[in-house]
């Protein structure tokens, strides 16, 4: 493992552990009052892991689209590799959002799935990015694979703002909670601290994964180059 990715992974893991401590032992519990009874909503603790995972997936998917656009503009192979690595890491987090989201939906709403705007648009996003990998694996020629992949990564990245906005349009009757609004965060200090620590830890860990994936792609490119050298020689 490269030194930079090792440092990032370790720092990320430490922050994630600190996030767990803050979420469970420092952040106050969410309490709801039903018929003069106070109920502690323990499932709300999922928020501290689910939301950072979702935000991290958005960051890497948007980066994937940006690098894809840079590849199309410059035709530099390194941008295509950066785009692919970012989309792959982003997709790992997309899968985690689906897993953690389904568990939270069951815990909070007592159903495994709800066809509401945020969940539906995120499902569309997941299916589109699954298509990205199918598309890449179905094209044999390297330059065409890079070109199609870059175009698809830009188109698919449009889903990120769509998913974000879908959960905020009142006309669509969203039931997904809105924590961050233009008026600020609807959280107290310790809750916000727990969230930010988890968020930052997740981003650092994801960046270390991205560096590892990029290393792998570059090493494979070196192998192809050396193989060509041997054949020519």
């Amino acid at each position: 493992m490269k030194k930079s990715s090792l440092i990032l992974a370790s720092a990320g893991a430490l922050l994630l552990m600190a996030g767990v401590y803050l979420a469970f032992f420092v952040a106050p519990d969410t309490v709801v009052r039903i018929d003069d009874r106070e109920l502690v909503q323990f499932s709300q603790k999922i928020f501290y892991f689910h939301v950072p995972v979702a935000e991290t997936s958005f960051v890497f998917l948007v980066l994937g689209g940006l690098f894809g656009a840079m590849f199309l503009g410059t035709r530099k192979r390194s941008y295509e590799q950066m785009s692919y690595a970012a989309v792959e890491v982003g997709f790992i987090f997309v899968l985690l959002v689906m897993i953690t989201g389904v568990l939270w939906t069951r815990a909070a709403w007592n159903v495994w799935w709800e066809w509401e705007p945020r969940l539906t648009t995120f499902l569309v996003l997941t299916l589109m990015y699954s298509g990205y990998f199918v598309l890449r694996s179905s094209v044999q020629e390297e330059s065409a694979k890079a070109r199609f992949g870059a175009i698809f990564s830009i188109i698919a990245a449009v889903n990120v703002p769509l998913t974000f906005v879908a959960g905020r349009l009142d006309s669509l009757k969203p039931v997904h909670p809105k924590v961050f609004t233009l008026q600020g965060a609807s959280m107290e200090g310790p809750m916000l601290a727990a969230f930010l620590v988890s968020m930052f830890g997740m981003l650092l860990f994801a960046t270390s994964l991205y560096i590892m994936r990029l290393d792998l792609l570059r090493a494979r490119e070196d192998i192809e180059y050396l193989k060509e050298e041997l054949e020519v020689g």
Partner: peptide, 20 residues
Amino acid sequence: MEFQEAWPYVVGVYMSIWAV
């Protein structure tokens, strides 16, 4: 959902993140 019912989901979320 209170602690008794919610904890398997909370633990499931945390474990699934680390496992993946």
